[in-house]
Nucleic acid binder design. Sequence first.
RNA 1: GGAGAGUUGGCUGAGCGGUCAAAAGCAGCAGACUGUAAAUCUGCCGGGCCACGCCCUACGGAGGUUCGAAUCCUCCACUCUCCA
Length: 370
Amino acid sequence: MSRLSFDLLHTDGPARRGVITTPHGTIQTPVFMPVGTRASVKSLTTDQLARLGPEIILNNTYHLMLRPGVDLVEKLGGVHRFMGWSGSVLTDSGGFQLYSLASIRKIREEGVEFRSHIDGAPYFMSPESAIEIQTRMGVDIAMAFDECPAYGISHAEVEKSMLLTHRWAKRSLATRTTSALFGIVQGGVHLDLRKRSVEEIASMDFDGIAIGGVSVGEPKEEMFEVVNHTAPLLPADRPRYLMGVGTPEDLVNGVAAGIDMFDCVMPTRNARNGTIFTSEGKLSIKNARFAADQGPLDPNCGCVTCTTVSRAYLRHLYVNDEIAASVYNTIHNISFYLDLMRSIRQAIESGSFNTFREGFLSRLSNKEKS
RNA sequence: GGAGAGUUGGCUGAGCGGUCAAAAGCAGCAGACUGUAAAUCUGCCGGGCCACGCCCUACGGAGGUUCGAAUCCUCCACUCUCCA
């Protein structure tokens, strides 16, 4: 009973089509994982989420550690049972919060002193405790505890941070037991550091490898310079996970670089903020021009939202702060992302990924112009 | 019939001689969001321009005082409260 297995089914150039197997089922890759930070994909019930068909979602160690706390989650049977979710769960280790909550933490060699963003209470997280927490919560895939450096700091500082991430990676791995564990490559936008980081992380026995430290404010060209440079260096026999990415275009481009897994808050957060992803580009449902638009959000979408309600109704819900606006929009955006990944997988299987990609990107750029 | 309070930009509502095209909130319009401190945040919001400066029209209406008025005075209109 291995923690995790990965089978590479097809390749189409650098693009890969595979299957990950966890104790909670199989995951067809390339995959997009909806983010459910606090054991909830915001604005959806677990049932609503399940109907959309994702095979794996994210939770967050830091947030669940603060509330409701690991002891309780463990006592209640782990995150799956806690939220009534039967698919796979990957947890971020809390490493990203070293970046997003930089003002309320102090990093040391042993680990990090956090202040809870909720009540200011002090917490300490180490690589060991981060992995232990994730394991006790019963997640399928845990992430190594890493430091995600901010964009714009010096090469020397990024290197120092990267080396800490490497040392923490070893300690994370030494703590692995039942949950699968992914290592995280860092190195900022510096290609030499990325290469060194891959060499270090890939030499360890992780169940998968992630590229972290992107989409932290760097220009998109730099992000893809890093991804295009780093992904090909990763071992082919393990899943490759690009953390925190991204837009629909980013997913397509990421797959083209050889990435297997993605996660991003964008479809869920943007849904709550009124931005809708469609086959014709994104739109803001707040716009006055949709006030009397009887059409669906996306004419090419078969989701519950698109098959039952109009843009006019969705705008009305949004403008009136109705909770249903978030629900409908989230259902659609997640559906759109999952459909996109399905199309990508089919394209790889049929050896037409490049054609698919070119068509997809040119369709979007045409929309930008018009 | 008597006494008092009030009338400000789409709405609520500050301002009470210059620094006021007029606070703030709401509404409206648009934008951002990438391992979620986010159902959040940002910008615009009288009109016009040869726009980081100028012109026009504006604080119930009409006059007046003043170098200068949304702010002071007079009259008019309307609204509200209290006493008969």
